[in-house]
């Protein structure tokens, strides 16, 4: 029990004294996950719109697949991305393995199904009257899409926040793709795993608290946006 209390106190100390290593790792985590979330959103939201408003053969299967991929194991992503980016793999010539860029790719793959799936569900659940109204007002294709998105924007914000949370807390893929290189690809989660195995419990606790704090901030921003809406 003492270990936990001591760890907690040291963690607070590391945080309030702006320990450079703790903050460096934290900022790297935010940087990588923020980039991944933005990229994944830009890819996924148009796909969700397409799935929601077009009918084509095999659509049901695709949607089932997307829902299944919610539970995509991160180590599997790690393995596949590793094999793709390794020098022996099809994209080896890019020299991306063990770089932050590779970790972003892994996280993009991780959260794309979540953003597509949840956005799609919101679009399908939307009152059809709204859809008809927008069309009757003479909107063109892009105006229509923009208006629809505006209607469900709070769901989109929440979805993106959820994707961010999922990506920043992931460890399996990050360690396989990034290699946990100190000062380069070491992020909060991989650092916690390593420091715990090295017996640096206090440092791990500090990083864990920061991770929790980031999740809290993201959640806070999202709830305050939604409260504003009500």
């Amino acid at each position: 029990m003492n270990e936990i209390i001591d760890g907690f106190l040291t963690a607070i100390h590391l945080i309030v004294t702006f320990d450079p290593e703790v903050y460096e790792v934290a900022f790297r985590s935010i940087y990588i996950t923020f980039s991944a979330t933005v990229i994944a959103s830009v890819i996924s939201i148009p796909i969700a719109l397409f799935l929601a408003f077009r009918t084509f053969p095999g659509k049901r299967t695709i949607i089932n697949l997307v829902h299944t991929l919610y539970a995509l194991p991160t180590v599997l992503i790690g393995l596949v991305v590793f094999l793709m980016l390794s020098r022996q793999g099809p994209f080896g010539f890019l020299g991306l393995l063990f770089t932050p860029g590779a970790m972003i790719i892994g996280q993009v793959i991780l959260v794309i199904p979540i953003i597509i799936g949840l956005t799609y569900s919101a679009l399908v659940a939307m009152d059809p009257v709204i859809k008809d109204t927008i069309i009757s007002l003479g909107a063109n294709y892009f105006q229509f899409m923009a208006s629809i998105l505006k209607e469900i924007r709070f769901v989109v914000y929440a979805t993106v926040a959820m994707a961010f949370g999922r990506a920043i807390s992931e460890v399996g893929a990050a360690i396989m793709i990034g290699g946990n290189i100190r000062g380069y690809t070491r992020v909060l989660t991989t650092s916690i795993a390593l420091e715990t195995s090295m017996g640096n419990i206090e440092f791990s606790m500090a990083l864990g608290i920061i991770l929790l704090f980031i999740a809290l901030i993201v959640n806070f921003v999202m709830t305050s946006i939604r409260r504003e809406a009500d």
Binding site: Y23, E24, F27, R28, I30, Y31, F34, S35, F93, L94, G95, L96, T99, P100, G101, G183, Y184
Partner: peptide, 24 residues
Amino acid sequence: AAVFLCGCTSDGGNDTATATTAAP
């Protein structure tokens, strides 16, 4: 802003990522 801040402080974010790709 946080992202940019991180790019500057963690001298291993942005710049190094591009440098590695160019390394070969």
